[in-house]
Amino acid sequence: MSQFRFILEPYVSPKSKYRCPSCNKKKTFTRYIDTEKNEYLAENVGRCDRIQKCGYHYPPKDFFQDIETLSSVRDFEILPKPGIDLLRLRKNKGLKPSFINEDHLFKSLQKSQQNNFLLFLDNVLNPEALEVVKEKYKIGTSQKWPGATIFWQIDNQNRVRTGKIIQYNKETGKKSKINWVHSMLKLENFSLKQCLFGLHLLNSDKNKPIALVESEKSAIIASIAFPEFIWMATGGLMNLKYDLLKPLAKRKVILFPDAGCYDLWNDKVKDLPKNIHFMISDLVKKKSSKKEKDEGWDIVDYIIPIWQKG
Rank of each mutant, 00 (worst) to 15 (best):
residue 148 A to F: 04
residue 148 A to Y: 05
residue 149 T to D: 11
residue 149 T to L: 08
residue 150 I to Y: 15
residue 150 I to Q: 11
residue 151 F to K: 07
residue 152 W to P: 12
residue 152 W to M: 08
residue 153 Q to I: 04
residue 154 I to F: 12
residue 154 I to G: 08
residue 154 I to S: 09
residue 154 I to D: 13
residue 155 D to M: 04
residue 156 N to H: 11
residue 158 N to R: 11
residue 159 R to K: 15
residue 159 R to V: 01
residue 160 V to H: 12
residue 161 R to E: 03
residue 161 R to N: 05
residue 161 R to C: 03
residue 162 T to K: 11
residue 164 K to S: 07
residue 166 I to H: 05
residue 166 I to M: 14
residue 167 Q to F: 05
residue 168 Y to R: 09
residue 168 Y to D: 02
residue 170 K to I: 00
residue 170 K to H: 15
residue 171 E to W: 09
residue 172 T to E: 14
residue 172 T to L: 09
residue 172 T to A: 06
residue 172 T to S: 14
residue 174 K to T: 06
residue 174 K to N: 15
residue 175 K to R: 15
residue 175 K to L: 08
residue 176 S to E: 05
residue 176 S to F: 09
residue 176 S to N: 05
residue 177 K to H: 15
residue 177 K to V: 06
residue 179 N to K: 09
residue 179 N to D: 14
residue 182 H to E: 07
residue 183 S to M: 13
residue 183 S to K: 12
residue 183 S to G: 07
residue 184 M to H: 09
residue 184 M to S: 13
residue 185 L to G: 08
residue 186 K to P: 07
residue 187 L to Q: 15
residue 187 L to H: 13
residue 187 L to V: 10
residue 187 L to N: 14
residue 188 E to Q: 12
residue 189 N to Q: 14
residue 189 N to G: 04
residue 190 F to W: 06
residue 190 F to V: 01
residue 190 F to S: 01
residue 191 S to D: 03
residue 191 S to T: 09
residue 195 C to G: 07
residue 195 C to S: 11
residue 196 L to H: 11
residue 196 L to G: 02
residue 198 G to F: 05
residue 199 L to R: 00
residue 199 L to W: 02
residue 201 L to D: 06
residue 201 L to Q: 15
residue 201 L to M: 06
residue 202 L to K: 14
residue 202 L to V: 04
